[in-house]
Design a protein around this nucleic acid. Sequence first.
DNA 1: GCATCCCAGATTGCACACAATCCGCTAGCC
DNA 2: GGCTAGCGGATTGTGTGCAATCTGGGATGC
Lengths: 213, 213
Amino acid sequence: MTTAYAQIRQAIVEGRYQPGQRLIEQRIAEEFALSRTPVREALRRLEAEGLVHSEPNRGAVVRDMTIEDLSDLYGLRAQLEAYAAELAAARIEPHQVEELDAAIADFDRALADDESDPLDVTRLIADANRRIHGTVLAAARHDRLGQLLDRTVDVPLSFQAFRQFDRAETERSHLFHQLIRDAIVAGDASRASALMREHVLQGRDVLVAHLEG
Amino acid sequence: MTTAYAQIRQAIVEGRYQPGQRLIEQRIAEEFALSRTPVREALRRLEAEGLVHSEPNRGAVVRDMTIEDLSDLYGLRAQLEAYAAELAAARIEPHQVEELDAAIADFDRALADDESDPLDVTRLIADANRRIHGTVLAAARHDRLGQLLDRTVDVPLSFQAFRQFDRAETERSHLFHQLIRDAIVAGDASRASALMREHVLQGRDVLVAHLEG
DNA sequence: GCATCCCAGATTGCACACAATCCGCTAGCC
DNA sequence: GGCTAGCGGATTGTGTGCAATCTGGGATGC
């Protein structure tokens, strides 16, 4: 099951299964050399996560979203991540501060790297970014919030082709990461929250502009 | 599947399956005169919703929560409902204002009713309350937010025995409902948001006090 | 006495078969 | 010509058997 879930999920997030496409159990089962049973369970799980939409007796399709839907989703994510930052400001532990600093340093290093393959640099940046947000979330120590955020963050990925980060945008993100880090470490919950909200909403604007253009 | 899901869920929320209790597929299947297959799917769905926790090859148990977990959950709910109120202030439509007013009027009527069986009154109040919050959520026009909220709101129910509402508390809720309604209708998003957050956090305090006492 | 190994029972994970349902299409009727 | 009823293929929903895995307890060795 776990394997079916992970594989189908990856296929959706990477865009191999496109929005709107029907996900026929038998076909997927054959594709992954499994029976329908684990495929069904994976589809139910993906439905609960919102990546897939399904109706009784009619099966599942990869969920399609309008730009408005995506924009709303980012708005929700902004709320959730802002709350995570707020909690983190009160709950973060020293070793998590170290993790956060390390991830921010990696982001900085990747940003300054003008020798490696740009594709690798993009990957490094994306990874450091994930670690930064992940550490804030872990510091919030709120399992359920983490769960909801994981799901909310991944959905839009299926609508973004893998794309290079614009330099100015990336530097702005870096700045925000540092400000957010400082607010959290200083225990200033309301500023941490506001900065994180703004940071995510900036991301929304960039995505929307990209999709409209 | 749908029937298995609904039945198991109800059993958990009503407390017939207690927190910590193992949910053995075969046993539940027999109890509802089904095979294990729909039961399995229902358990997976409940797991995704957070009502149930399960580990590979070890099965599912009704999720247990500490007071801290519940308190955190209410904090999350406060964020989400506040966001719903914020969006509703910008998006509500005339017929939804009518629905909201009708639900608030029902709440008022139930509150003034000192003749009916107190248990019926409590049920009426709980129902009006659900409609008020449901209408705000509908007015927010944000499917995903609605989904997340449904799940976040129901979980604590399994930890509350059905209880009478304290009169002062109920009147305070009624007041907040009216203030929230006015802010939404006036299009004042930030006040609607702040009021809703406070309203939910009051609910948290009451629940926590109740569980500790 | 204590730790370790191993076995038996219980339970979940998966495959497969059959039943129920849905959708598109054709034939028949008005 | 257009509309409705009904048929057949495709797909999902459910039941069941077997394999894989975990748990607890007892026997064995130190």
